[in-house]
Design a protein around this nucleic acid. Structure first.
Length: 599
RNA sequence: CCGUCCUUAGCUCAAUUGGAUAGAGUAUCAGAUUCCGAUUCUGACGGUUGCAGGUUCGAUUCCUGUAGGACGGGCCA
């Protein structure tokens, strides 16, 4: 259930780190002797290489602290020794044409790389790969199923649905960028007594399909909320809901007809919102889809002698694993949530033969996932280990967890609309009467920036953190925000558009530390993507985007690009612009935002 | 009672998974930009990383305890 936490091996993706790691490896091996068991491997060394806090110290750094146990000397002395070895034994250890300077400080060996090699190496990668820069092949040939968003039918999406939807969508894209084949599943809550309540409420207070068709899920939500209120006063309503659900289960013509109608309306509405956010699914197999697949699971559990009768219910005892029992069948023989999850996991394995089976759900469900995944393991399925629960923090509204049942839903549709309107207003304020863009273009841009702002704001923090939703904050586009990133992207595009010379990315000169800083950040995109993949953490990409935007904006402010001192410098800076454009563009794609070359 | 997660600047959050002087945004104050796009940029202010121990060269990070908060814990999903 927990994702892997081992140190990321960057050995295969970063050429420069690889070269330095190899040189370090040879020196360490030579100094300590071949036979030592505790020597670091090349991969470990590559993983230990980091970036100095200040670019004046160097481009890459190797900490010698772990070596002090092996060498039995202070990290400082070791650093000096190794650095000395680098310069002494140039022929077989030092790629001297690639490293300009080596220095030691506080137990670190700092490497300043040769501009010509370092910069060229990175820019070659970027200009050759363009919109694939940052991608990798660690997932090639593998399939991952990802289950996210999963709203309930007959209800509109609330602002709280944004988190699972965005996080899932971004994790999907990050995996795609790593080579995985992705299957996105929207496991809609379309079964159970809530459906009986909707049917009962409809029959009691509406019974008019034309009204439902006009007002859509919003009318269904009204009915549902009203049902909750009325049922508090009159217990008989719940009996009605139960009997309607029984009718549905038994295939009653009217019940099934209504249910199908409501389902169609619901899916049309959520697809409309997903479309606005640029989100797509491969499957909408919801809970009802697995209704006829659970008996087999129960039979299998019985056969394998895992089930146990306890207080009238069929359970799987998990006390051995320090967990409460997992309920499979109720006293009345009805199935439960874990039963359905096990059935769907088995189905997904059979249908997609996944290498990873990812679930994006709020952290309240952690125990349930741990339980049913453990049960599938006990059933003897080795792929149970590949079922991964990715929890995220809860969204509160005014100190209360949002619940449609209580009718305090804040609609996602409203949030998106307000975001777009707000951007339209700001655009009008900044460029009153601007004629360079048509009305349609302005609308299109406002949509991209507005929706992007909301999505970025949702993804920028670690997913495990709780969120206190308030309208002002959700619509605050200052500072570290989506618009800042999109604006910077547009700015880079704008410069490139105004340029009429050909850019020669193979002939680059660097004149200051800002340019160097940009190169350094650009070089990090591939490993950031791998970190985001390993940790299922889109915020890694968001943070990276903010970093690169901050440096690029400083560079843009301080350095003339089109009016640079010489043709050579102009060419170099334009190349940086274009490289930044690719990096930001790819980052935006990874978190599900649209690009605009004008704002 | 048991379990999981969270706690870092006034506020919202980072910190290369145990590393160099703990960094951004926001708010406040002071500035820059005759210019490639002012949703930009530069400063200043802001810290006993909840608290107490422990592990070691080194802890915001790992362990134990403790306080506060959120959420779970057999017939809901």
């Amino acid at each position: 259930m927990e994702y892997r936490k081992e140190k990321l091996s960057l050995f295969m993706i970063c050429d420069i780190k690889k070269i330095i790691a190899e040189a370090l490896y040879n020196i360490i091996k030579k100094t300590t002797g071949e036979t030592r068991q505790d020597n670091l491997s090349k991969e470990e060394i590559a993983g230990m290489i980091e970036y100095p806090p200040d670019i004046n110290m160097g481009d890459l750094a190797f900490p010698c602290f772990r070596l002090s146990k092996i060498f039995r000397k202070s990290p400082n002395v070791i650093a000096e020794t190794i650095a000395g070895e680098f310069t002494r034994d140039v022929e077989d250890a030092v790629p001297y044409n690639k490293i300009k300077n080596i220095s030691c400080a506080g137990g670190y060996i700092n490497f300043t790389l040769n501009d010509k090699y370092y910069i060229q190496n990175i820019l070659n990668d970027i200009f050759e790969q363009k919109d694939k820069y940052g991608s990798s092949n660690i997932g090639d040939g593998k399939t991952a199923v990802i289950d996210y968003s999963s709203p309930n039918m007959s209800k509109p999406l609330g602002v709280a649905h944004m988190r699972p939807t965005n996080i899932g969508n971004s994790i999907k894209k990050i995996h795609q960028f790593c080579g995985y084949k992705m299957i996105a599943i929207n496991y809609i809550g379309d079964w159970g007594t809530p459906q009986g309540k909707i049917l009962a409420a409809y029959k009691l207070w509406c019974n008019d399909m034309t009204e439902i068709e006009e007002k859509g899920v919003y009318k269904l939500l009204d009915l549902y909320v009203n049902f909750g209120v009325e049922a508090e006063k009159d217990e008989r309503l719940n009996d009605m809901a139960r009997s309607w659900f029984v009718k549905l289960e038994q295939g009653d013509e009217e019940a099934v007809g209504l249910w199908k109608k409501f389902m169609g309306i619901s899916v049309a509405e959520i697809k409309r919102i997903y479309n606005i956010m640029g989100i797509e699914f491969d499957s909408y197999d919801g809970e009802s889809f697995f209704e006829d697949k659970m008996d087999a699971v129960v039979e299998e559990l019985k056969e394998k002698n895992i089930l146990k009768l306890d207080q009238g219910a069929q359970i799987v005892d998990l006390s051995e694993y320090n967990m409460p029992p997992c309920l499979i069948l109720k006293t009345d023989g009805a199935t439960l949530y874990p039963t359905r999850d096990i059935a769907s996991a088995i189905y997904r394995k059979k249908t997609y033969n996944f290498d990873k089976n990812i679930y994006v759900n709020d952290m309240r469900q952690n125990l349930h996932f741990a339980q049913w995944i453990k049960v599938t393991e006990l059933m003897g399925y080795d792929w149970a280990n590949n079922c991964i629960n990715i929890p995220f923090g809860l969204m509160n509204f005014g100190g209360q967890v949002m619940a449609t049942r209580k009718g305090n839903t804040q609609l996602l549709d409203d949030l998106l609309k307000m975001a777009v309107e707000k951007v339209e207003t700001i655009m009008e304020e900044k460029n009153p009467g601007d004629e360079t863009l048509s009305k349609e273009e302005k609308k299109e841009i406002a949509k991209k920036v507005g929706i992007g702002a909301v999505m970025f704001g949702d993804l920028v923090n670690s997913r495990i953190k709780d969120v206190n939703f308030n309208w002002e904050e959700a619509l605050n586009f200052n500072g570290n925000s989506g618009p800042y990133v999109q604006y910077t992207y547009a700015r880079a595009c704008s410069v490139l558009e105004k340029n009429d010379t050909d850019i020669d990315y193979k002939n680059i000169v660097i004149t200051n530390n800002l340019e160097r800083e940009i190169i350094k950040l650009l070089s990090q995109l591939p490993e950031k993507v791998l970190i985001a993949e390993r940790e299922y953490e889109p915020s890694v990409i968001c943070r990276y985007l903010l970093d690169i935007c901050a440096v690029f904006n400083r560079f843009y402010h301080d350095c003339s690009i089109l009016k640079a001192e010489s043709a050579e410098i102009k060419n170099s800076r334009l190349a940086l612009c274009e490289a930044v454009k690719y990096a930001i563009g790819n980052g935006l794609w990874l978190i599900g935002l649209e690009k605009t070359n004008k704002v």
